[in-house]
């Protein structure tokens, strides 16, 4: 399954490129240049935002990994210092994402968290200190994934509309038909928007939040951190942006 952010980035770039191509023949060089510049600038902003989201997810994984060590460490003080720095960086990136994306409408209100007694006191202290902040960051992940999904669906519909118009016009208007016309028509009429990616991403984000709540309530043991990691790995797999080929 293609990662959600990769799919979002590729679809956004394709939608952007199609717009440039759509009217290229009708534009003068001057207008072509202006439009190229305009549309490329806006695309770069979106790609920067997607990278920030990917980084936010990776940092959350590092935080949970540190939390796992905190539960087992003989020297929790040194680990505790690391969580402080991590949480601060996660929050900085989080506030950047909250401002940039269409996430606001998807963010649910904060819930009151009651940290249960944990056998590992350092873990309990860490949760007392940072659980409410982490809960918000996980909520942001969830909301951002939903906002990404919205953009992806819109870009996909737009691209499909362009292809459909070309397919119809090539049949109705005069001139030879491309040999791939039948195949393209079939693909257009039978393709569905990749709802599976979107569902999987939001479900993974929900699962991560549920597991985190269970940790706070001491319903999972530190040994069960694997569940937390598998939840976040699922998101990372979904949100990874393809690295440029070297």
């Amino acid at each position: 399954m293609r990662a959600l952010t990769e799919a979002t980035a590729i679809t956004a770039v394709d939608a952007n490129s199609q717009t440039l191509l759509y009217s290229r023949d009708d534009w003068s060089e001057k207008i072509r240049e202006e439009n190229y510049q305009k549309l490329t600038v806006s695309l770069n902003d979106l790609l920067d935002e997607l990278h920030a989201f990917q980084e936010h997810t990776q940092l959350l994984k590092t935080y949970f990994s540190t939390l796992s060590r905190l539960a087992e460490s003989d020297a929790p003080d040194s680990v505790s210092g690391q969580t402080e720095r991590l949480v601060s960086t996660i929050q900085t990136l989080g506030s950047q994402l909250e401002k940039a994306g269409s996430v606001k409408k998807y963010i649910r209100p904060a819930v009151t968290l009651i940290v249960a007694n944990h056998k590992q006191k350092a873990l309990e202290e860490e949760l007392q200190k940072h659980a409410p902040l982490l809960e918000r960051e996980l909520e942001l992940q969830n909301a951002y994934l939903k906002a990404l999904a919205e953009g992806l669906v819109s870009d996909t519909e737009y691209l499909k509309e362009i292809k459909q118009t070309k397919n119809i016009s090539s049949y109705i208007e005069r001139g030879a038909l491309d040999e791939k016309w039948t195949q393209e028509r079939r693909e257009l009429l039978t393709s569905n928007i990749r709802i599976d990616i979107l569902d999987a991403a939001t479900m993974a984000a929900d699962n991560l939040k549920i597991t985190f709540d269970a940790l706070i309530e001491n319903k999972i043991k530190p040994g069960d951190f694997e569940t937390l990691f598998s939840d976040i790995e699922e998101i990372i797999t979904l949100v990874e942006i393809a690295q440029p080929h070297s």
Binding site: Y22, S23, D26, K38, L39, S42, L43, D45, L46
Partner: peptide, 26 residues
């Protein structure tokens, strides 16, 4: 008019991308 429509479409798409990535608080 056809030219005008195509420029309008490019402007709409640019506005859309700007609206999508601009910090709403700003």
């Amino acid at each position: 008019k056809q030219q005008e429509s195509k420029i309008l479409l490019a402007d709409i798409i640019y506005a859309l991308e700007e609206m999508r990535t601009t910090e709403w608080q700003s």
